[in-house]
Design a protein around this nucleic acid. Structure first.
Length: 113
DNA sequence: GCGGTGACGGTCG
DNA sequence: CCGACCGCCACCG
């Protein structure tokens, strides 16, 4: 019970830098759960209202906000725009430009790349 | 323990 | 480019 999937997922989301976004699938892979995009959505849904996890930086593979609950999506959009992430008229963002590209985890004392 | 469900994703028409 | 379908996998009743 060291760390549930939720803990790992939240841990990954917490690493997303300000002004950048990540996709559900990307977060899933980084959390060690390939094909677990849906579970990422579940994990974020389970977050409390007040949290230090920047859940708003997670978008779907198309680069748009996929939230069903009306209100929350607006909050997410506002927060991202405030961080400098721009959306087009279709509510999509340019992933090539804003997607977070994490560096491979350095294995302490081992050169990365 | 089973079946339905869903902040998703890739494929097909 | 867009909508429909199916596949995945953990949570909930």
């Amino acid at each position: 019970m060291a760390s549930s999937r939720y803990e790992r997922i939240w841990g990954v989301v917490r690493r997303i830098p300000r002004g950048r976004v990540a996709t559900y699938g990307q977060v899933a892979v980084l959390a060690g759960i390939p094909r677990g995009a849906r579970q990422v959505g579940y994990a974020l849904h389970a977050l409390p209202d007040v949290t230090s996890v920047p859940w708003h930086r997670v978008l779907n593979a198309r680069g748009c906000i996929s939230v069903r609950a009306g209100g929350a999506s607006v909050t997410q959009l506002l927060r991202l725009e405030r961080e400098g992430v721009r959306f087009d008229s279709g509510g999509r963002t340019d992933l090539a430009r804003f997607q977070w590209q994490p560096r491979r985890r350095a294995r302490s004392k081992q050169l990365r790349r």
